[in-house]
Design a protein around this nucleic acid. Structure first.
Lengths: 225, 225
DNA sequence: TATCTTAGCGGACTGTAGTCCGTTTGTCAA
DNA sequence: TTGACAAACGGACTACAGTCCGCTAAGATA
């Protein structure tokens, strides 16, 4: 398994760059026109099938057949269902990611480092609420898979949490003996999609309750005053 | 998806009772002798194969072939690999579960409710360290699956955390406005096997660091004195 | 326009999960 | 001991994931 430590530098830029962008800059030839067409067709078909039958129920074979392409072609574009989900999430994600990266715009600028950490939590939970159907398959087995996009997506989120935590500690708002590295993962755990779905659907907690809950945990590491 | 709320009463007794015990008390006829033999053979073969090739690599088909039984027979006993892992975990689990249920013996009696919560964390992490290879397949997709044993195992752990948290709040050691229900899930999240494996293997945190980390989080909800 | 190169295509193929159902056999009652 | 019955067996079968590799045609070159 890859060790993600210290890869922050390479990962961050990827956040604001789509895989397509990267490919174009790395490769000599552009993608062939039929390949572009097929990619679009796959995404279109997948989107429709997911909407109709639910992500879980749709098989890769079904997608290939519906799109009238061979399985080889499908797998050339997306090596498993999660990658397809990730691609469908791209548009939505970008807005979210830019928001986080920009420091949450005006709202973020008006508050402290700790405030931005809270904003990060709220936005993450909102994002999960809106996209959990695609997020689960997109991230499952993230640590086991060796899929680059998935690792990047996961590591990016982790890094953002780490940065915000570090800032909050540096600004003196959090206890200085905090194990930031552990807390980063703990935060990722609390904001994990599996836990989210369990809490929302099996336990029935509301979005606001989840936000308040994470906040309550974070309040615990705040410098006592 | 099942709502687990309020099922505490039925779940707790199951913890100290093996599936076999339950079957015996519920059914008229005892299990047929050839069935008992086959079950033992399957467990034996699975244990050996898991040890030799790693749980991930071993397939259900391979287990059936090695045990010289039909696939139907295998699936009659264990409907998927995780159930097999759960069965193999039974012995080890029981010691752990009894320990928790007994209130951590002498050590638990000498300390406070909060102390027992910390003990619970430590023991859980130790347990994961020893059994993660079987625990991951045993619990994966726990929320999605409708497997009874799995739900019981998961819900039992959740309940124990809830009880210990409640006691700690009742004894005045934790902030009284704590959202216990949320915190229960959060604790489950922090003690989740997926996060554990990620932190241990991908990030490389030590067992002691994990214990200390969870404790740091819990210290945050402790009544300030 | 003709030729060449190779990215991309597609479907046959392999391996696994999991089901189905006709057959076998352990157990119990007479 | 025998017959009846259901529990248990087992392997053929279906469905899906994912790979492989020979073929097709896009588009670069001249």
């Amino acid at each position: 398994m890859d060790n993600l430590k210290g890869r922050a530098g390479e990962i961050l830029p990827a956040l604001v760059t789509t895989p397509a962008d990267l490919k174009q800059s790395r490769q000599k030839r552009e993608e062939r026109s039929d390949a572009v067409q097929n990619r679009l067709k796959i995404l279109e078909v997948a989107k429709a099938l997911f909407a109709k039958n639910g992500v879980e129920k749709v098989t890769m074979t079904e997608i290939a057949e519906t799109a009238c392409i061979g399985k080889g072609t499908l797998y050339r574009h997306f090596s498993y269902k999660g990658e397809l989900c990730l691609a469908l999430l791209q548009e939505t994600s970008r807005a979210f990611q830019n928001d986080v990266l920009s420091g949450f715009g005006e709202e973020g600028r008006r508050t402290t480092a700790l405030g931005r950490l809270y904003l990060y939590v709220d936005r993450s939970i909102d994002f999960m609420e809106q996209n959990h159907a695609l997020l689960r398959p997109a991230l499952e087995n993230a640590s086991a898979q060796h899929n680059t996009d998935q690792l990047v997506a996961y590591a990016s989120m982790r890094l953002l949490g780490a940065v915000l935590l570090k800032e909050a500690v540096a600004s003196g708002e959090c206890r200085s003996d905090l194990d930031i590295e552990y807390m980063t993962d703990a935060l990722q755990g609390l904001l994990g999609i599996e836990l989210f779905i369990y809490q929302r659907q099996a336990i029935g907690l509301s979005v606001d309750r989840l936000k308040a809950g994470v906040r309550q945990v974070l309040e615990g590491i705040v410098t006592k005053s």
